[in-house]
């Protein structure tokens, strides 16, 4: 058996199984995230939320999925057909392939690569293409406006996300996600780097186009922004991509700042739960804040969004980067000194 899994065919089968072992839970989580979002928003607004399909509305995501699949895919006559259909696939594909490097326990990643954090950064910076291409290929004013907004927004907030990552990396001394988590054995980075944690979370909201940064959709001004022309499965793929990206961003927050799979304080009653459970619990906690923010904060105006990104977060994260580097140097805490 061992011999078979060392042959090229065996390795391929093993990799496919590993991929399924992470994609299926992520998609299930995504399905229930949509339900959780509706339930939490309902609780915030003193309503009941979906409670008809199945017990407590637990089958609602599947009802939604079946509805989406059964509907007709409409392609506008003026649209660029190839790009129009490519955009949602790109969005969803990018949201899924990023999971290849996420470690849910010590060494439990499909690809434990040396530059894991750069890979994640690269993939999340590609997410903007799905939106721009969708907006352009739809051949519609509203879609194009949404795409332009999203391009400017995502490029702006990536800059501060990059600096936040650099200040975490300075404390770790490695670009490997596994090492980043293991470096937090003594203290999770959300404590010493608290301002960066906040900047990262808010930039994450902007990066996933979640409210209060959901200007690319802006349903009250540009109808639904970049996916106004989409229907049925193509729309469902955008939807899937958005929620998978949310889970991914929560996973990144967990790995960078909340100690990944590590149990809090590393002491007895907490360590009884296995690592992956802790990882999922932390991701869910971050996701809850994502939804909570959506239920609380009104949408930003466009100039305010740009001001926050370039005039507040960028200088703040640069300053904190310099401070971090200075503190590490001063106290001799540099990981490779």
């Amino acid at each position: 058996m061992q011999g078979f899994f060392a042959t090229p065919l065996g390795v391929t089968i093993l990799t496919v199984l590993e991929a399924l072992a992470i994609i299926v839970p992520v998609l299930l989580m995504m399905a229930y995230l949509t339900l959780a979002e509706r339930k939490v928003l309902a609780a915030i607004q003193l309503r009941r939320g979906p409670n008809v399909v199945g017990p407590f509305g637990l089958l609602q995501p599947f009802a939604d999925a079946i509805k989406m699949v059964m509907k007709e895919t409409i392609i506008p006559s003026g649209a660029n057909r190839v790009l129009f259909l490519m955009a949602p696939m790109l969005t969803f594909g990018l949201a899924v392939i990023a999971w290849a490097v996420i470690p849910v326990n010590d060494g439990w990643a499909i690809a434990d690569i040396n530059v894991g954090i750069l890979y994640l950064f690269a993939i999340s910076s590609l997410g903007v293409y799905g939106i721009i291409i969708a907006g352009w290929a739809s051949n519609s004013k509203y879609a194009f406006l949404g795409a332009l907004r999203s391009a400017a927004q995502m490029v702006s907030y990536e800059v501060s996300i990059g600096f936040v990552m650099v200040s975490v990396l300075l404390c770790v001394g490695s670009l490997n996600l596994n090492d980043i988590v293991l470096a937090q054995r003594h203290v999770w980075f959300c404590l010493p780097l608290f301002p960066m944690f906040v900047v990262f979370f808010i930039s994450g909201l902007a990066e996933t186009n979640r409210s209060p940064f959901d200007l690319p959709e802006g349903e009250s001004e540009i109808v639904a922004g970049f996916f106004v022309e989409y229907s049925a499965m193509a729309f469902a793929l955008f939807y899937l991509g958005e929620y998978t990206n949310m889970i991914l961003m929560s996973g990144m927050t967990t790995i960078l700042f909340l100690g990944g799979w590590l149990a809090p304080f590393g002491i007895e009653p907490f360590t009884w739960l296995p690592g992956p459970i802790w990882f999922i619990l932390k991701v869910c906690a971050v996701l809850l804040v994502f939804i909570w923010v959506r239920g609380t904060v009104p949408r930003y105006r466009y100039d305010q969004l740009m001001r926050l990104g370039w005039k507040v977060f960028l200088p703040l994260s640069l300053l904190w980067l310099v401070l971090t580097a200075g503190a590490l140097m001063l106290f001799g805490w540099l990981p490779h000194a």
Binding site: I113, N114, V115, L118, Y119, F121, A122, S125, L126, V128, Y129, I132, W136, F144, A147, L148, A151, A152, M154, V155, E158, L175
Partner: peptide
Amino acid sequence: AEFLAMILVIVYVGAVAVLFLFVVMM
């Protein structure tokens, strides 16, 4: 050269080409 590969994607694909696309579409 994994670092160069990732930086190429981040800088050129993630930022420069987005702006190209932005300008060309406009």
